[in-house]
């Protein structure tokens, strides 16, 4: 079985995002970029399935500008067999990303597609579900445990009510939640090895997908700030203050 993994590059999760004063975007110049944490978890899960003998090949997919190569090399160093780089100068919205993935799915015929449940830049949480719909295959979102056997995936999902387990016939789309696994660290020799792994470069325009970027972002603003409050000296003062505010 082949596993396709979405591998997006985003502003590193430790960066404190600043909105540009003119409201046209957020500051990304000179800011550290990293793999979307949920995508590292997706890749880790795919690698573990390969190590268990469930899958033979793990292919990572990135959609982005020419300089995405270095990011994809990281995924290859982590252990992916090869990468597909769909090139586009502009960031794509989830529907377009899902349509791109559908094209790649038709070409690669994977048994499983694993994506992060959301990217920590746009926080959209859509692409996996959209791909599953367009492909007319099962989706198992927010996965915290995945077992593959007998042509189906048994997936435990983190839902608001607790833990839900569903069964999905393969091929299927799984999106990862935080507690699915802890991604491995990249070792130096693997970075060297990754240099010889193949990256297929495909121009987005050549895939013939209908553009799905229907949302126009017209303004960026900083969130309203909560002002720093006051410190109380002890438990008695805290309780008294809360009682005074009518909260206790």
């Amino acid at each position: 079985m082949k596993i396709l993994v979405g591998y997006k590059r985003v502003v590193d999760y430790n960066v404190r995002i600043q909105v540009k004063p003119d409201g046209t975007g957020v500051v990304t110049e000179g800011v550290k970029l990293s793999a979307n944490p949920f995508d590292d978890i997706a890749l880790e899960e795919a690698l573990r399935l390969r190590e268990k003998g469930v899958a033979e090949e793990v292919v990572i997919v990135g959609i982005g500008p020419a300089d995405l190569t270095a990011h994809l090399r990281n995924g290859l160093a982590m252990g992916a067999n090869r990468a597909i780089h769909v090139t586009t100068a502009e960031a794509v919205q989830p529907l377009t990303a899902a349509r791109v993935f559908l094209k790649l799915v038709e070409k690669e015929q994977p048994g499983l597609v694993i994506l992060g449940k959301q990217a920590i830049d746009d926080d959209a949480n859509q692409t996996g579900q959209m791909l599953a719909a367009l492909w007319d295959r099962p989706q198992a979102t927010f996965a915290s445990k995945v077992e593959i056997a007998d042509g189906k995936a048994t997936v435990t999902r983190e839902v608001d009510a607790g833990l839900e387990t569903i069964e999905a016939d393969l091929p299927a789309v799984i999106t990862t939640d935080l507690r699915l696994n802890e991604p491995r660290f990249i070792k130096l020799p693997d970075i060297m090895k990754a240099k010889s792994k193949p990256i297929d470069v495909i121009e987005l325009g050549s895939l013939g997908v209908e553009g799905g970027d229907h949302l126009k972002t017209t303004h960026y603003a900083a969130p309203p700030k909560r002002s720093k409050g006051v410190m109380v000296k002890d438990a008695a003062e805290l309780v008294a203050t809360l009682k005074q505010k009518g909260l206790l």
Partner: peptide, 12 residues
């Protein structure tokens, strides 16, 4: 909200 609520966008 985007970026964990560190920016608020207006979308049409």
């Amino acid at each position: 909200p985007i970026y964990a609520g560190n920016a608020i966008v207006t979308v049409e």
